[in-house]
């Protein structure tokens, strides 16, 4: 179980002599990923989802708030003491090309963390190569084919599988997949997603799925929770299917409306809102963060910041003063 409460992160952008500008990447985010569960973070670029993923994977530090891994709060620990906890959380990078060292064979790439693992657990040296083979088979590739090869000799899909196998070398408790299929050919994406799903079911690894594409989140986390992030704030959260079918926050509705409709297979949703693009939002810090773009805003929205709360209208939480269900997602066309 991995939880976070009130996570904030502010980046300082280097400005001129008069001072630097601050970018608030995360404005107090709460989350919880149960053991073996699947959770998705959804949002556009700049919403803070990647920063949050990197903080959870221990690759970045947050400013305030607390991350608790299996009951142990991380803040009181020294960076050295934290490391073994964060090792249980492995990040799967977006780009499998840069995630593998081009000068090392797959065998070398897998061997290094396995050697460490063998030392930690007191296993014999012979275990290392055997385990490397097991892991590659587990992610669906033939060890005999890839072990002696360099990353450039593999296809994008195979590379991503190797990256996943490498993450599994340390027996992680959670995989953080940040846009993990966006650079892979369309026809192969689903097989990688299916692999992640399969690993969750077979190994009980929990999955944190970070993406801008709600449809893939629906595929991977159909049983889990979905968090919609906007400008560093969670604006809606709930069970994946529930958020997708009964979105109440206008931003969630805008995101869902933006997904292309497969005309011929589906019809656009009745209340699909053609959303407006992001304006210059840097200084609009007063009131609801989405107010400037929101077609349903009122005076209250421009003055007060809504906080995440439950409502009787739906089974999920949202941060909106005027929540209303809208049918924005496409419906299946009847043949």
């Amino acid at each position: 179980m991995i939880t976070g409460t009130g996570i904030t992160k502010t980046y300082k952008q280097r400005g001129d002599v008069l001072g630097s500008r601050e970018v608030r990447a995360l404005r107090g985010v709460d989350f919880a990923v149960p053991r073996g569960g699947a959770v998705s973070f959804i949002g556009e670029s700049g919403c803070g989802k990647t920063t949050l993923g990197r903080i959870i994977a221990g690759l970045e530090t947050h400013d305030s708030g607390e991350i608790v891994i299996d009951g142990t709060p991380m803040t009181p620990l020294s960076p050295r003491r934290r490391r073994p906890y964060f090792r249980r959380i492995q990040l799967i990078h977006q780009d499998p090309y840069s995630a593998l060292n081009p000068t090392r064979t797959i065998h070398q790439t897998l061997r290094a963390p396995l050697e460490l693992r063998a030392r930690q657990t007191g296993r014999p040296g012979s275990w290392i190569d055997q385990r490397a083979g097991e892991l590659l088979s587990l992610v669906g590739i033939d060890p005999g084919y890839v072990l002696g090869r360099y990353p450039h000799q593999l296809s994008g899909g195979m590379r991503q599988r190797v990256v996943i196998a490498r993450a599994l070398t340390v027996d992680p408790e959670m995989l953080v997949a940040d846009e993990s299929v966006s650079m892979i050919d369309v026809s192969m994406r689903l097989s990688i997603l299916a692999l992640l799903k399969d690993l969750r079911e077979r190994l009980g690894v929990s999955l944190l799925f970070i993406t801008h594409d709600i449809a893939t989140a629906r595929y991977i986390g159909d049983a889990g929770e979905l968090y919609v992030l906007y400008r560093g704030q969670v604006v809606e959260r709930g069970l994946t299917e529930s958020v997708i079918h009964e979105p109440v926050h206008p931003y969630t509705q805008a995101l869902l409306s933006a997904i292309p409709v497969l005309h011929g297979l589906e019809r656009p949703g009745r209340e699909r809102v053609v959303p407006t693009e992001a304006l210059d939002e840097r200084h609009a810090d007063e009131g609801c963060l989405f107010a400037r773009r929101c077609p349903f805003r009122t005076e209250r929205c421009e003055k007060e910041l809504p906080v995440l709360a439950g409502c009787q209208d739906s089974s999920h939480e949202h941060a909106c003063f005027h929540p209303q269900r809208r049918a924005v997602i496409p419906v299946e066309a009847v043949a």
């Binding site: 073994p84 090792r87 492995q90 990040l91 990078h93 090392r104 290094a112 963390p113 490498r166």
Partner: peptide, 28 residues
Amino acid sequence: ERGFIEAARGLGLSTTHIIGRELLPSMA
């Protein structure tokens, strides 16, 4: 900043390994 260095750190590999085996060959 490249993914493979970050991954090596995330996996808990030693600094010696990262500098000697991952960084240095890339700069050879």
